[in-house]
Design a protein around this nucleic acid. Structure first.
Lengths: 235, 235
DNA sequence: CGCCACATTGAAGGCAGTCAAAGGTGGTGG
DNA sequence: CCACCACCTTTGACTGCCTTCAATGTGGCG
């Protein structure tokens, strides 16, 4: 798959941040874009690096994480193709607050900050888009924070529901298969725990008849039960 | 203290969100502002309420929290006079994602959303201010998330350092007194724990010679030790 | 003086993290 | 084709921190 200018414009237009922009403005952004390939395990940027721009994942899969004091990593987001990331860093300070690493060979479009700033100053629509994007971000963080107050099995249930909704919009029901898409170790880091505990959590969900576990796919057996668990959490 | 229009304009001008606006624009905002008094314990808005605007705390003290499934409350922010809050709700959706309650008798300026939207569309500076504010928000959340990975005493140390920096900018040193400003129960909720555990955490900080505890004021005895604890956390 | 909210301290129980070991899988090279 | 190795996953045993329950102390306020 080759990335031609027209393709880049098309990809940009589809992202929420650039929706509603005039074609010539899109083209201007597209000209400034630099395509980068990141091998599996490669770092796109590291915590503390100077923030030179933000990114659109074209293909592959990435994670964004912070290192915790005790050497573990706290995964903030998994990035799927078509999603933008690191927008916030551009406006929050001069350096990235987290690290982006490829979970699979990935191709990203890098949008440099200068061009974006010039555009923002005279384009209210883009500014509103960015605001909406940031607000969505804050919501996600909010949700993540709420998750952390719950016990691990409840967090797992919440993740399965969220991922299930994403993969099967509107058709989530008993019997549906949900792909994890990441190693269980990675998932554990995203849920703020470790592999062993995640393993036990899955075992308990299975024993309680809520799900079936098949490799990296989960079959939902009791959707209502999962919702209860994800909502109830503690007691 | 009476709140006259000129005072309102002055208070608005000092907030980061409205800095750099033309006087006539500020006046337009000030005219749309509605002052509200909230008694101690009173709710300014509740989780799920339609988001009609955002707020500037003029005097008093408030907290913004979400209810957790098990009936506790997760405090997201303490609001001090001069700070704005609930901006994000305006752009993230139609309803407030959390509840705002007065910890002391408070006076708030309510800025309605319609006027703000009209202003944003034709004022890039305001838009950039909002973006910067949001970005700061995300950073805070980010920090909060990192805090949660640490043990409770480390969280307490982190809070003391942050609050100390806020109250004594640039002059934080051994012997400085930091006011908590809130009940210890409230502080516990902010740190994601309960009163008893917070009490034990303070006891341990005192035994280790890091601080002295006097009612609702903390005297810092070993700043370096506090930083170590806040940074190290787990092991 | 007595009530109430807040704070502290003790004892017990549970969940989760750590260490350790075994089973399974995929990839590589002989 | 098979053997070997590295990595992931699971399970067990143990430890530690935090939560819960309970009792006591303390200050404000009617």
């Amino acid at each position: 798959m080759k990335t031609e200018p027209s393709q880049a414009v098309e990809a940009l237009r589809r992202t929420p941040v650039f929706s509603g922009l005039e074609p010539e403005e899109l083209a201007a952004v597209a000209r400034a874009v630099v395509m980068r390939e990141v091998p599996k395990g490669g770092l796109l940027f590291e915590e503390g690096d100077e923030a030179r721009g933000f990114f659109l994942l074209v293909s592959g899969r990435m994670k964004v994480f912070k290192a915790t004091p005790d050497g573990r990593e706290q995964i903030l987001h998994f990035i799927s193709p078509g999603e933008t990331f690191a927008e916030v860093a551009l406006f929050a300070g001069s350096s990235y607050p987290a690290t982006a690493q490829a979970l699979a060979p990935s191709r990203v479009a890098a949008i440099p900050r200068e061009g974006l700033f010039r555009l923002v100053e005279k384009n209210p629509q883009l500014c509103l888009n960015l605001l909406a994007g940031f607000a969505r971000w804050v919501r996600q963080f909010n949700a993540l924070l709420a998750e952390y107050a719950k016990a691990v099995p409840a967090r797992v249930a919440g993740y399965l529901l969220a991922e299930g909704m994403r993969q099967h919009p509107g058709t989530l029901a008993d019997g549906v298969r949900v792909r994890l898409g990441v190693n269980k170790g990675e998932l554990a880091a995203h849920l703020g725990t470790v592999g062993e505990t995640l393993s036990r959590a899955f075992a308990r969900l299975r024993e309680d008849g809520l799900v079936e576990v098949e490799e990296k796919e989960i079959v939902i057996r009791d959707l209502a039960g999962l919702r209860d668990l994800a909502a109830g959490g503690g007691p």
